[in-house]
């Protein structure tokens, strides 16, 4: 069976960006989850990825992390096509919405497991694990089974395992979800530190102040399509020309505008004109 166009890595070469997509599309039957998505995210950038529920954010992240196969289009992580899974996964860390952890293990065992699978030397791994555990106030509970962890503790563990082997690209899906203000601050500080070390952060969240505070560039997805993309200051200043002044207003404006346009195009008149 032939691969979707370009996803076998034989298409146009990447321009060496941290994350790059070209016409990335994912269809399920007759439902378009992600449509013709073009991303160009440079090394060390923090990219805020916004969108209403069901807009295609998680599907995009799964496409970028090689967990889903595109229907068409291409994607590269750190210059490596996602179709080349063994090489692509060496360049990324991922925190899904539900942290992938085994309840039966202790926190430390889980992190060592991921470190072992990621080829981090044992001594380096142990040192990093201890640092992160202390940074996220998990050190005291590190040798307890994860089944006894709270939602916030699980989330923190998921974040640590995403960045444990210091990948050049980290994709975080709702990283501050379920965290108290202190833990949320620790996550934001970590994201800032990673960006300072030229790690690219692809950050999907509904908590707009987090994006406002951290992101260098913001992309807004609606119905699987990119409806706005710019740096947050520019987006807000553009919106200020109208009635918007915060990122939340911008988000509501662009997604509402897109939905209205979608509804109009579904009217009989629009259908007749197609």
């Amino acid at each position: 069976m032939p691969s979707p166009a370009g996803t076998d890595g034989t298409g146009p070469a990447s321009s060496g960006l941290a994350i790059e997509t070209d016409g990335l599309t994912k269809r399920y039957g007759d439902v378009d989850a992600v449509v013709d998505l073009d991303l160009a995210i440079d090394h060390g950038q923090i990219y805020g990825f916004l969108g209403p529920n069901g807009s295609g954010k998680t599907t995009t992240m799964r496409l970028l992390t090689t967990l889903l196969t595109p229907s068409s289009g291409q994607a590269w992580i750190d210059g490596v096509p996602v179709s080349d899974r063994p090489r692509a996964i060496q360049r990324l860390g991922y925190l899904p919405e539900e942290p992938p952890i085994f309840d039966e293990l202790t926190g430390r065992e889980q992190l060592r497991y991921v470190a072992d699978l990621s080829d981090v030397p044992a001594a380096v791994a142990d040192e990093r694990i201890q640092d992160y555990l202390e940074r996220f106030d998990l050190a005291e509970d590190a040798d307890r089974r994860i089944e006894s962890y709270s939602k916030g503790m699980r989330q923190k563990l998921g974040i640590v395992q995403a960045v444990l082997d210091e990948p050049p690209v980290v994709l975080l899906d709702e990283p501050t979800s379920g965290l108290d203000p202190r833990a949320a601050r620790a996550v934001k500080d970590l994201i800032g530190d990673l960006a300072d070390r030229e790690t690219t952060i692809f950050l999907s969240t509904h908590i707009l102040p987090v994006v406002d505070e951290l992101a260098d560039v913001v992309g807004v997805l609606s119905d699987g399509r990119m409806v706005a993309e710019d740096d947050p200051v520019e987006l807000k200043s553009r919106a200020e020309a109208g009635t918007s002044s915060t990122l939340e207003d911008v988000f509501l404006d662009v997604t509402a505008t897109h939905e209205e346009a979608g509804e109009e195009s579904d009217t009989p008149e629009a259908a007749a004109g197609r």
Partner: peptide, 20 residues
């Protein structure tokens, strides 16, 4: 760009896949 500490070569992975 900085070295992110991950082995790039496939040989490393191939060498260890049974251990992993």
């Amino acid at each position: 760009r900085p070295d992110h500490g991950r082995p790039d070569g496939e040989s490393t992975r191939r060498g260890h896949w049974i251990g992993k």
